[in-house]
Design a protein around this nucleic acid. Structure first.
Lengths: 138, 138
DNA sequence: TATATATCCTATCTATTTGATAGTATTTAT
DNA sequence: ATAAATACTATCAAATAGATAGGATATATA
């Protein structure tokens, strides 16, 4: 399962992509209201996405958030990794957060192979979807 | 990520499948030693698998665990669901543990579709693997 | 320059889950 | 009887999830 935080992050990005314009940044409070996300929690999430160069922000009146890059260049897998960390089901098959399992020998591990397959199938979907492609469902 | 508990459960089942025989049940302490799993924690896991009709147990001297069904009839997805619950990434796309997301309307949810795809791709792998097929990696 | 309004930052909190450990009771083969 | 195995109940510490509170800072505009 992905966390609520991650679900909120994805929905917020899709909302921003669908509502931003040159003349308008999208405010936390608008996203929170329309997507039913606790506002203060959402602030933390959006700041984290900004710190990871997914969003840019503008403070003060008429402030808000915009995508820092085109929506078609932000993949779902990238967002999920920022918020929730590894996508793989085992640390030892993670591409971006690899850790060895201290209790088992990877060269003879009976289950590593299956979870590599799961990882690859999962990433085929998640790498192929972007914030742009998700806005088409709006 | 799956939990350590779930990883232990899978490894223990594969170990049992590989080592059981008509004349021999497999003991917790042997699994714990060979697979480097904390023994008392493993006891809890094996009991849970027995309660869910994956294993049968025999108490007392020469006791231990055996698969209740043929290893080829126990899929990886079934084991994972018993120990960790849902395989899907969102509650609202789970086949066995469905829950609605209270904050969003499923008929207009922008992200439900992708996670249905991920679920289906994941299950193609996990339904196709059994305790039997995993023992071939031993 | 005052003001309203937005993000930024730090701290804190509660409940749940994870990953175990301890100790005792019960069953069974010999 | 006894040794050796599972069964059961209770407990615990650390991490994570899912927030909330309050004040600091920046900015558009009257």
């Amino acid at each position: 399962m992905i966390s609520n935080k991650c679900k909120y992050a994805i929905k917020a990005l899709v909302y921003i992509a669908a509502n931003e314009s040159d003349s308008r940044a999208v405010m936390t409070s608008d996203i929170a209201r329309d997507q039913q996300i606790p506002r203060k929690f959402l602030e933390i999430i959006l700041r984290e996405l900004r710190n990871n160069r997914i969003l840019e922000s503008k403070r003060g009146k008429d402030g808000g958030f915009r995508l820092l890059r085109p929506a078609e260049d932000i993949s779902l897998s990238e967002v999920m990794r920022i918020i929730d960390g590894p996508i793989a089901m085992l640390p030892c098959v993670s591409l971006n957060y690899y850790r060895s399992c201290d209790e088992c020998d990877e060269s003879t591990c009976e289950i590593k192979g299956v979870f590599e397959q799961v990882r690859d199938r999962t990433l085929e979907v998640l790498n192929g979807q972007t914030i742009k492609s998700l806005t088409l469902n709006c």
